[in-house]
Amino acid sequence: MKKLILSAVVLLGTMSIQANVLPVSENTKTAVNVQSEYTEVAADAVPAAVKTALQTAYPGAKLEKAFLNEKKEYKLEISVGDQKATVYSDVNGNWLKI
């Protein structure tokens, strides 16, 4: 009987030692992307390279609004059929992923 009680005490003692929770430091990093301000420009002010890239990538797309930032990047609000989308391009007609 003594061996049974002693075994139970030893077993419970070893289980409680492993049950200790170690403190975990949580280093949280927050990344904030600051997007440049865009100002609205006329659709006629959009360079031909951007318009050509738009028609190549999205045939039949209609340019609704165009915006420009100080980096010469264009934000284009387009519609294709009944769908609307916003795409980004540089001055040379290369698509940007934002």
Rank of each mutant, 00 (worst) to 15 (best):
L96G: 09
K3Y: 13
N92D: 13
M1T: 10
E64Q: 15
N20R: 13
T86Q: 08
T30E: 04
A42D: 15
V32T: 12
N27K: 12
E64V: 15
A45C: 03
V41A: 02
E70H: 14
I78G: 00
L12H: 04
V9T: 05
D90Q: 02
A57C: 03
V24G: 08
L76H: 04
K71G: 09
P59K: 04
L68Q: 05
V46P: 02
K62C: 08
E26R: 11
T39R: 13
K72A: 13
V24T: 14
K62V: 14
V9E: 01
N33Q: 15
E77M: 08
E26T: 14
A43T: 12
S36D: 10
V41D: 09
S25F: 14
A43W: 00
S36C: 05
Y74A: 03
A19W: 11
V50P: 08
A45N: 06
V32S: 00
V32Q: 10
V41M: 00
I17P: 02
I78A: 00
N69R: 05
Y88I: 09
F67D: 01
L76F: 03
A8Y: 08
L6F: 10
E40V: 02
T14L: 07
E73S: 03
V41F: 01
K62A: 14
E70L: 09
V24C: 10
N27M: 12
M15I: 06
G13Q: 10
A43F: 00
K72I: 00
T30I: 14
I98L: 13
L22Y: 14
A19K: 09
P59Y: 01
A8N: 01
N92R: 11
V46R: 09
T28P: 06
A61S: 02
A57F: 00
T39M: 11
P23R: 10
D90P: 03
D44K: 11
Q18D: 09
Y88P: 07
S7D: 06
A57W: 00
K97G: 02
S89M: 10
E40G: 02
E70G: 06
Q18S: 15
A49Q: 00
T30A: 06
I78F: 04
T52E: 05
V34A: 01
Q83W: 08
E77W: 09
A42H: 11
T28G: 07
P23T: 05
K51E: 02
K62L: 12
E37T: 14
A19I: 06
A53R: 01
A53M: 05
Q35W: 10
A42K: 11
W95D: 03
K71N: 15
L6S: 12
N20T: 14
Y38L: 05
K29L: 03
V80M: 06
N92P: 04
K84D: 01
L54P: 05
Q83Y: 12
T86S: 07
L22M: 14
N20D: 13
L11S: 12
T14H: 05
E37V: 15
S89F: 06
Y58S: 06
V9M: 12
D82K: 12
A85W: 09
K97F: 11
P23N: 10
A61H: 10
V91G: 07
P47D: 05
K65M: 00
